[in-house]
Design a protein around this nucleic acid. Structure first.
Lengths: 184, 184
DNA sequence: TCGATCCTCCTATAGTGATTAGGTTTTGTC
DNA sequence: GACAAAACCTAATCACTATAGGAGGATCGA
């Protein structure tokens, strides 16, 4: 008689991602998510282990998607070309999926998991184009991640109060990184 | 008879800051804060307007402290010297007050308030030493803030899985910024 | 010193969200 | 069709935010 929603973990996480991107990560409560899915809150426990687990899955999903986007952007390019493409893809993803990106932030060690490592690998691959290996590559990767992450965060959170094109600021930041990596 | 805690808004916010720095921002609940202060949760409403207000005050307090620290670091220095000093002070503050720094992040528009503007001003002052004014200074300030913010965030949140000195990575990041700003 | 008043803190209470326990019905398989 | 697994539900608990309204200590003028 009852239609049954026919959920599984992926569907739950996907809906949560939509909710997060549309209304912010804080809007993702089990109660609201359940309502969205036409189900009672306790039913969600059949698919996720609880709110922390849901958030972790959201982050893992986002890291995987982001890594994919970066990989695609880097494909077939090198050096500054690759760096600009990867940077653009990074920002594009974060702006298109603000809630998911937010979830990515709050993932403490989980970022250090599978998908997180994939993210680092893409950056390292780009740096190899600059001739950077070993220690130097790692320092470079940290710098690149920090810069992109920080910029996107400031943009999405605080919004850069001043009326000056954000695109241009980003382009210049990436140019600075390019110059710095070339010199290193 | 009753000893009375003798609280005021500053004391409440200060204790909240201690709690946040010691156990993370999420540990700062009115219930726990009240327990910490030897008081019942409703009593806190005499000093702060609620949890959002408390968080906002935490952020404002942090922004003011951070701006002070940066101003001190910049005093009497110029260019790369000033940049390195400010960057070091920035990271030092964030590491010493992780919970407060976390609160700073979550403050949406409040960062754009008094204390937030002071923060930007310090960076702009440093950039003036590089001969940057107007648009170029703003782009530069965004780059610097993004890089420092992003680095500190990655360090405190995810911890840079790899076993390679974080200090050295930071130093190199700042060096990249220095080079980039000099060229701009 | 006496008292009016303010302010701090309290109890009581409501409401929301996460989570667990334990049962019931649908779905898939033989 | 019957059995087993799994999806969902109701009921209940607990932690936390928040409001309402009251009691008592502190302060200041007389």
């Amino acid at each position: 008689m009852t239609p049954r929603a026919g959920l599984d973990t992926d569907a739950v996480v996907a809906t949560a991602a939509g909710l997060a991107d549309a209304h912010g990560l804080d809007a993702v409560s089990l109660t609201r998510l359940a309502r969205e899915l036409g189900v009672r809150p306790p039913s969600l426990y059949a698919h996720v282990a609880g709110l922390p687990d849901l958030r972790a899955r959201l982050a893992a999903r986002g890291a995987a998607e982001l890594a994919d986007a970066l990989r695609s952007a880097a494909a077939g390019r090198a050096r500054g070309d690759a760096l600009h493409a990867v940077a653009a893809a990074y920002r594009r993803y974060a702006l298109a999926h603000p809630g998911t990106y937010q979830a990515l932030q709050r993932a403490p060690d989980l970022e250090g998991g599978q998908a997180g490592a994939a993210l680092v690998d893409v950056v390292l691959a780009v740096l190899r184009g600059y001739g950077l290996r070993g220690h130097r590559a790692i320092h470079g990767a940290r710098a690149v991640r920090a810069a992109l992450h920080g910029f996107v965060l400031l943009e999405t959170r605080e919004g850069f109060g001043l009326p000056l094109t954000v695109e241009e600021s980003y382009r210049r930041l990436v140019a600075i990184l390019d110059r710095g990596l070339s010199a290193a």
